[in-house]
Every structure is written in structure tokens, then in C-alpha cells.
Design a binder for these strands. Structure first.
Lengths: 347, 347
DNA sequence: AATATCTATGCAAACGTTTTCATTTTCGAG
DNA sequence: CTCGAAAATGAAAACGTTTGCATAGATATT
């Protein structure tokens, strides 16, 4: 029994061809354009491939046709609840298209993002999704030069320089603020993550501010506090705030911070929404089940991930579409137990 | 001005070589084995590459040398808090080694895992980390046949068939159960995720059971309940349980379930640990800050991720080490506010 | 000064596919 | 049957690197 094996120890397309009594070209076609090969031959090839345990080498193929079958996803962080749902749905959808996903996180460091995009390009990704609009020019230029389909996701803007799929974060901020204001709250505290290199947080904050201004309220600057993307830190900051003068409501830049606030209130024996109303943005896993349920705005992470994957695959196939366009996904305000009208004495 | 560009529109190694006045081979060496090229020449090449905006094609290179520079990570789920920290640290460490990560989730479907591993092999990964020991034989055989470095991570076993890096999940289960038993609880309810295709959960459960048996307790079967990996579902199950006869303590298979239990108690106006003690396993993000803080066992996800990345890179480089070995990472019991001695009347 | 060693580089053959173009086979119509 | 078109296949040239071997200087050794 002669072993027909290439260097790696695994059979290649040539061995399969030999065993099936056809040429390598036909085997290749059997995989890539099955309709071009006679059903009978195809069967024989499939059998030969199965017998040999053949696994094709997509990388070798990608040298000839330009497609690696891999897409990049660059996020600020994988760890936090925020993007996990997005990553999972993006990956699942790519898998559905027989593609794979390279993920990398830059931790809100745009300099690191440059290195990441470069490394993705070295792997010849067929396309890449970046979070939001705040990016260094260098990677964008590299992607443009190489005509790599690029998508900005998660946030939305009419005048987006890149094609984008995302939610209106300004509106999200406006919605939650409006809700509190409509209930009668007049002195909210805003707890937002740092806004540099983070257009989503910036837009949400701007939206909340706009709503506040629309009510004729002039918010003193000390009512705007910065809280990092961290449950524990947010909780600590809120505990500090409880010691000082307690507001009647807190608008949080995202659900993580809001959960921290809720925990802080529980620790400080404050009733929600009796003593304090809390709103978040995002509707992450857990926000519906925490006690009290968190009033928030649902950002459809899953839909964004799916759509982004579909669009990227499509873009990579059709050589066209140089003009940017954008797709807005719906957000929904979700009222739960964490908000109520202000009570006498507070605020 | 003559354009020296290849099909893609981007310059290749040949253009760089031309501009630097050397052969492509030298440019290649400047990248891969810099010591082999004269510093002066190297400078010239670097300049030429920078001028042209050259980005090398690692895939083309990987055809010749066997390394794609990409590693696979196959997890049950990305979405849940459980593995996010692991994924992030694994990716970060790979980046540190100038490698990238392909992630895929199979949702506890071992059949899907087969397809995933196959797809990873088609991408010529340099190595792969799988979660735990429950795997289909097919992908393991494919990996073995191709001599792809494979690591089982997250769980630990002395007699692991694969090299592994992980924590002793049996001991984790034992520790939390022991803690409750030592406090005087005698009739805990166990709330665990489904254990098929999940050796971690199985081991934890076995550990908890062992501790219970060691106390001479014969746990009635209805005291063991299955709860999926979902906060909301766990909360609902616990609310049901509150209606029936309330135990004095609940041992949860992981922190997600434990958080659901805590929320359920808050919803049912039960005091923790006054009316009920709760323990989890994992010490996920949030477990320290929830009110009351969750008593749990810390599994060092980050250390596992880092170590796994280091080891895989090392394995991919050294052609040796066919014999399996295993690395145990420490776990630490963390007592927080969610546990206390049973009170009269309960249980 | 001649020879032996390095060091730095170039040449050209891989690597495992895909794809163009040409050729053969099949099939339906006359 | 024969012919022409369509369908199925094969031969060989890519794809953009890396690397073994060979060569040409440079340096060290006698």
C-alpha cells in the first residue's frame, strides 16, 4: 500500500485526484463550482476525499483567488458584556456563510488598533468591521488602498465616512433622559464612560444633554461624572455620590454602569425607584433580571452582528459599491422597575 | 512614474526588493531572520517598504513555511460572561506573540464542533485550544493526524488524554459545598447546568456531591435541579422553588445561575443569607459587586488564557513533545456576603 | 600570500491550490 | 449516422512568498 502524502503528512488535492482518477483541476472544481462537474465524477471525488481524510487548504487557494474566507472584527473589548453578543452573532453568521472570524480587542487604544488592522491585512482578510467612527486615519487608509471592504458598526450617522450598520446612540441617550424628565426629575446626575475614542458614549451623552436642555434645565458641570466601563468602579463612584447630595435620578452611559449604581443603592439601603431612579443604555444580558429591572434602551446587538456579517460577505463578493451608505437599526425604549417619579424631599 | 504594483493594487515583496535594490529573498530575510541581513541593507529595505506602504502577505508565506500565525479557540459560547475573560486574555497574549486568533462557538453542540475544527484546519491554524474534555473523536483524530498542537483548557484532570491547562472543577464544587455544610446547612438544593457535553459542570457537581456524601447526607434526587446557562431562566426556576419548600442553601453550578438565584430572592423578598445562603462557582465579573457579594470559587480565567497562548505558541515551534502533560492552575475560595449559617425553622 | 571560514546575497524551486485555455466527450437535432 | 454545440475534463501557468543551494566578498588563519 503506497502512501501518497505530501510533506505535512496530510493528503492534498493531488492525492485525491489520483485516487478518484481525475485531474486536480476537477477536484478543485468539485469543491468550488460543483455544477461544473458531472454528478458521477463528483461522487467519486467525494468518496476519494472521504477515504483519504482530505481537508483542503483554503490558504493555498486564497493565493490564487483573492479570498481568504476570513473576516476581521475589531472591538474595544471582548471581555465586557457590551460586545459579547455582537461578537457571537457576527461569528455565527459568518460561519453560516462558510467564513471565519478573526477578533481582536484594542482596549480603546487607537494606536493599538493600527497594529491590529495591519496584522489583519497581513492575514489577507476579506473584510473588516470596526466599532464606531473614532479611528486613526492610518488603518483606514491602509484598508482603502487595498480596497478591503470595511464597515463601521454599532453606531449610526447620516454622514458616515464609511458604510455603517448601527443604532442611533444620540437618540438612545435622548430617550432615557426624556423618560426621566417626563416623570418630573429635574436634577439628574449623568454617569458616563470617558468619551475620547468613543463616539458611542459621546453621542449618547449629547443626546441626554439635548433632552435636558430642551427642558430648559441648565445642568451644573459637577452633575456630569465619568465612570469607567466597570461594574465595581461604577458602584464605588455611586457610593461616593450617595454620601454627598443624592440626586433623584441617574442617567448611565450604559447598562454596566447602571448595574453598578443599582448595587450601590442596595448597599446604601436606598430604594429604587423610591429614593432614586436609574436608567441605562444597551439592555445587556442581566438588565432585565436584576432587581429592580433596569429601565434602558435596547440596542439590537444581535441584529447588528448578523447584518454586518451579511453585508461584509456581500461586499467582498461584488466588486462595486464605492459610495458609502448606512443602515440604521431600531432601538427600543424598555421601561422596567428602576424608574419612577421623584418623591418629595429628594432632588 | 512607473507603477510597480501587483494585481491587488498593493505592492509585493518584489516591488520592495526592486526599490531597495536587492533580491526578494533578501527582503524576505529582512523580515523573518533579520540577523542574516546587513544592518545597512536592512535599513534600505525598511525604507523601501515604508515608502511603498508594503504589507506582507503572511498567507502566501505560510504556504512555504508551515506557519499561518493563527491559532484557533473553540468555546461553547462567547456571549456568556463565562468565557469572555478567557477569550480576551488568550487573544491579547497571542497578539503579544505576533499571532492572531480565530474564535468559534459551538453552543455545547459537539457535532457543530466537528465542523468548526474542520474549518479551522482548512485555515491551517498553528494550534488550537478546546474547552474541556468532552469532545467528539473525529475532530481530535483530524488534529492528531495533522499533528496540530492541541490543548484542552479550563478543566483539569490527571489522566488527561490531551495536554491541558485548567482548574480542578471537582475541587471547586467540593469547596463551595463544604463551606455550606461546615456552616451547618444540611439540605442544600443543587442548581446545575446540563452536564452532557460539559465535563466542567459534571466535575463540579461530582465534587459537591462528594462533599455532601462525606457529611453522611443522602440527598434526595429532587434536590438536584437542572438550570441552563441563563440568568433569566435560573431566576425563574428559583422563583418556582421559593413557592415550594424553601431550602436553607443553594449550590449553583456557576455564578450566572447564582446571580439568577440572588435576583429571585430579591424579587421574593427573601433575605440573603438570612433566609437562604447561595454559592456560585467561577467568580465572574459582577459577582464581587452584586448585593450581597457572592460567595464563590475563583477560577483564574485570565491566567488560563495567557498560559494556553504561551504554551500553544511554544508547542507549534518545537517539533517534539508527543506525550501529554497537564498544568493545574490554582483556584481560591472567596467568601462574601451571600452565605451564612442556617436559621431556625428553615430547612 | 594562499587557503579556509564566515557573512551577505542571489537564483530558482518549491508550497497547494485555482483558473484560463484547450481538448475531449456527450448529447440533441437533422 | 453525422454534425455542431454544450458539457466535462485536463494541462499548465499563475498566486506571493520562503528557503536550499550556490556564489561572491570579506575576514581570519596559517
Amino acid at each position: 500500500m503506497k502512501r501518497l502524502r505530501s510533506r505535512r503528512g496530510a493528503p492534498g488535492i493531488i492525492e485525491v485526484a489520483q485516487r478518484a482518477g481525475v485531474s486536480p483541476a476537477t477536484v478543485s472544481r468539485a469543491y468550488n463550482t460543483p455544477d461544473l462537474v458531472k454528478p458521477d465524477t463528483r461522487k467519486r471525488i467525494e468518496k476519494a476525499a472521504a477515504d483519504l481524510g482530505y481537508i483542503r487548504d483554503l490558504l493555498a487557494g486564497s493565493l490564487q483567488n483573492r479570498f481568504s474566507g476570513t473576516f476581521g472584527l475589531v472591538v474595544p473589548t471582548i471581555d465586557n458584556a457590551i460586545f459579547a453578543e455582537l461578537i457571537e452573532s457576527f461569528a455565527a453568521r459568518l460561519r453560516h456563510h462558510d467564513r471565519t472570524m478573526l477578533v481582536a480587542a484594542h482596549g480603546y487604544d487607537l494606536q493599538l488598533e493600527v497594529a491590529i488592522v495591519r496584522s489583519l491585512l497581513e492575514r489577507r482578510i476579506d473584510g473588516v468591521a470596526l466599532i464606531g467612527f473614532d479611528h486613526n486615519q492610518i488603518p483606514l487608509a491602509m484598508l482603502r488602498d487595498r480596497a478591503v471592504p470595511t464597515l463601521s458598526i454599532w453606531n449610526y450617522r447620516d454622514a458616515s465616512p464609511l458604510p455603517c450598520v448601527g443604532a442611533d446612540n444620540f437618540e438612545a441617550g435622548r430617550l432615557v433622559a426624556e423618560h426621566l424628565l417626563a416623570m418630573g426629575h429635574r436634577d439628574p446626575v449623568l454617569l458616563f464612560p470617558p468619551t475620547e475614542a468613543n463616539d458611542r458614549a459621546r453621542d449618547r451623552l449629547a443626546g441626554a444633554m439635548a433632552a435636558i436642555k430642551a427642558y430648559g434645565i441648565d445642568l451644573p458641570p459637577e452633575r456630569l461624572r465619568v465612570a469607567p466601563y466597570d461594574l465595581g468602579r461604577a458602584k464605588a463612584i455611586m457610593l461616593d455620590l450617595c454620601e454627598a447630595d443624592l440626586p433623584s435620578a441617574v442617567i448611565c452611559g450604559n447598562d454596566i454602569i447602571a448595574q453598578g449604581v443599582i448595587y450601590a443603592c442596595q448597599a446604601a439601603q436606598l430604594a429604587i425607584p423610591g429614593d432614586l431612579s436609574v436608567v441605562g443604555i444597551g439592555d445587556f444580558r442581566g438588565s432585565a433580571h436584576i432587581e429592580p429591572g433596569l429601565t434602558t434602551v435596547r440596542l439590537p446587538a444581535q441584529r447588528i452582528g448578523l447584518t454586518a456579517a451579511d453585508i461584509l460577505v456581500e461586499m467582498s463578493q461584488s466588486r462595486a459599491d464605492p459610495e458609502p451608505w448606512q443602515k440604521l437599526v431600531d432601538i427600543t425604549f424598555v421601561e422596567r422597575g428602576s424608574t419612577g417619579p421623584p418623591t418629595m424631599g429628594s432632588g
